[in-house]
Amino acid sequence: MNRYLKLLHYELFRIRKLYAALFALTLLLQFAGIFLFAHSYLNQVREAMFTESISAADYAAKYGPTSFYRYTTGSLFFTGPIAICASALLLYVFLIWYRDWLGKNMFIYRLLMIPASRMSVYLAKLTAILLLVLGLVAFELLILPLQNAAFNGYVPSDLRYSFSIPDIVATHPLLKILVPNRIGDFLLYYGAGLAGVIVVFTAILFERSFRFKGAIGAVVYGAATVLIFVLPAFVAESAFPNYLYPRELWWMELAIGFLIGCGSLGLSSYLIKNKVTV
């Protein structure tokens, strides 16, 4: 346990610079986007007011006001950084292993020779990924009210609607997945995500154990788990529509995801203990 925590600390420590860069990028782009978005909207308003000689209130009545919500859904400056962070973390799911294997200094030798269960190395990497995701989501939630305030400070109140932050989060197509409203959905999404990372980790260990043959096995394994996860829902929906209640389907998917996660964890444990090779 002790060594697991130390390993987790180390995993987080060694990514700190890249992680800080992701924070900085999100902060910078999303705030810059607010001013660009609001600026171009206000220009539009000013132009209309000039050419059509109407007041700001008239403009709002005629063309509709804007809102912070519209910025968050309509501007790449808001969704772009989220996409970049997500892809960076997705890539890091692979890099967190391969960086120890590739390169001149094979740190994986040291990690595998630590006098603790090799699963603590594995779980430290898994927890690190989870914490990195949660950290970025938390950061987004933290800066969202600030962005809202900045937006409201820039756009006069007669030209905009105001939404509460929880309403924005609950309706935004991206945010409602990252921060689900219901605890059940939270468990399902993050559980599925975690199971997905475990499956990818298992696939990586397959490749690291059996190299080329393992890579083929990894792809087959990944496809099989996706199939197992998706197929029951697909069959239930297409062959027996309305047979299962959504709630029952939810429970089924949760159970399947849980089984896939546990199975993969067991397989990972076997591979890292007995089959992995430096």
Partner: peptide, 18 residues
């Protein structure tokens, strides 16, 4: 895992991160 406190391996290149 317990034997890693009893046997140490020094590979032909350094294995700590650069």
């Amino acid at each position: 895992k317990h034997l890693y406190e009893k046997v140490a391996f020094i590979p032909d290149t350094i294995i700590m991160p650069p």
